[in-house]
Simulated scan of single mutants.
Amino acid sequence: MWRALASNMLTVLVVGLFLIAGLVLWGKAQYTAEGPLETAICLRVERGSNMARVSQDLQEQGAVTSGMIFRLGAQYSDKSQELKAGSFLVRERASMEEIVEDITKGGASTCGTEVVYRIGVTSNKVLVRELDPATLEFVEVAEFDPAVDEVPNSYTEKREQADTRYRIAMAEGVTNWQVVEALKAIDVLAGEVTDVPAEGMLAPDSYEVRPGAERSAVLQRMVEKQQLRIGAAWENRQEGLPLESPEEMLILASIIEKETGVPEERGQVASVFVNRLEKGMKLQTDPTVIYGITKGQGTLGRGLRQSELRRATPWNTYLIDGLPPTPIANPGLASLEAAVAPEKTDFVFFVADGTGGHAFAETLQEHNRNVAKWREIEAQQKESGN
């Protein structure tokens, strides 16, 4: 009898072990299998949260089939205590294993709110936007000019959320003074700016920043990126250019940046200035004259006067020979590349054509005809109030 009982108990134990093993294998398969989510969602993990709350949230949103398996899988992979606060994009059909990896690996939030501080040539803007998980595109929540507009409540609210991301978007053609003044006005940054980099040495680009970041550190990142771009552009320059150094290349690139209205024209605009330098002609470009007046501290806000075109400054290229002594703005990568690889043309003149671009010419006679057309367009625009 005891033998039979022991045999039965052993059988039950073996069957139980097989059942447990099967259950573990099934749970592991569920943990790594494609998830049920049909449309991506944004999962927000609050500070102080835990896997239990997260698993419940995921199950309620239909992202996991079992909150318990999700928790056990996180525990089995030793990630239960590595949960990070933030907003995370959970893609459609993401497995529990993939979700656990995303919410424990750290780094910037991949979903939720983004605040973009745009540093522009004529104005600065603050843009508040949310990522739509379904389309993976940002939806604008608010946009305002901090210099003139009232700060919207949406910005204040998002500033209080720990998972909000911040970016500084610096446009091509802004001056160092404009960048520094804009950084001073960004309230998520800290510290003073004691050393302003040389004009042209800040790379126009997008920079992610964290609250409390030092303004000087942000400037240093911009300088380092511009140094890399300058070095690469100079290394890949065409032979025979009338440029003696990377500094001269940077000056020319800044002029190209300020004179280019249509990106596709950069190569032609560059060719005009290179041709003029090679022929010993004065550059005669208005943006350099404007820089001599403003020193890069804001925009002129009006057209140049004849007296200003005749006023002697180190940047007045109607009076000086060759390049001015410094860049007149921060050129982008495309303008740096155009400065060292201009199109092969015989153009030495250009004038606005009324479409935002330019009409180019090889001879003064042809240029004068283009100027006459532009004067007609200007007159028509004034009559129509444009």
Rank of each mutant, 00 (worst) to 15 (best):
V351G: 10
T260F: 12
E46N: 11
D195I: 08
G112M: 06
Q178E: 09
E192Q: 09
N386K: 13
R305Y: 05
L202Q: 13
W26V: 04
F360K: 01
E308Y: 08
D57S: 13
A40L: 05
Y117W: 06
K295G: 12
S384N: 05
P325Q: 01
R302P: 14
T65E: 03
K373D: 10
P211D: 14
E140C: 06
L323G: 12
S271I: 04
L37A: 06
S206R: 00
D195Q: 12
A213W: 04
G298W: 10
L37W: 01
E244P: 02
A4K: 14
E92P: 06
V180T: 07
M201C: 03
A142R: 00
G385N: 00
E278Y: 04
N368C: 10
G212P: 12
M170E: 04
V188K: 08
L127Y: 05
L219W: 11
Y117K: 10
T299M: 07
E248N: 08
E224M: 15
V174S: 02
A190L: 06
A185E: 09
G62T: 11
I251A: 07
P246L: 04
V151M: 15
S216G: 15
A6H: 13
G357Y: 01
P152N: 00
K258L: 03
V115A: 08
W374A: 11
E337V: 13
Q178V: 14
S123P: 07
D321Q: 03
E366H: 10
V148Q: 04
L136M: 11
E343W: 00
N275S: 12
L10P: 08
G62K: 14
E224C: 04
S335A: 12
E259R: 13
G296A: 05
G173V: 01
L131N: 05
G173T: 01
P146S: 06
G191K: 06
F360P: 09
K344Q: 15
S109A: 13
E160S: 15
L250Q: 05
Y117P: 02
D149V: 06
I230Q: 12
G86H: 02
G106N: 14
Q30I: 13
V54D: 10
T285L: 08
L83Y: 07
I255T: 06
M222W: 07
G48L: 08
G280C: 10
S80P: 09
E98K: 07
V12T: 09
A339C: 00
V174H: 00
R118G: 13
R311Y: 03
H367G: 09
V151K: 15
G191H: 08
F138A: 05
S206W: 02
Q268M: 07
P331Q: 01
Q61V: 05
D346N: 15
Q381I: 02
A63W: 05
G112R: 02
T355I: 02
V269P: 08
G280K: 11
D187S: 13
K105A: 04
S216N: 12
G292T: 13
N330C: 02
Y318Q: 03
P342V: 06
L89Y: 05
V45F: 11
I251W: 05
P324W: 11
A233K: 01
D187W: 02
Q81P: 01
E248C: 08
R210N: 13
A171T: 01
Q226E: 07
L72P: 04
T355L: 03
W374Q: 14
G48E: 09
R47F: 06
E137H: 10
A21Y: 00
V289E: 00
Q75M: 12
V15S: 05
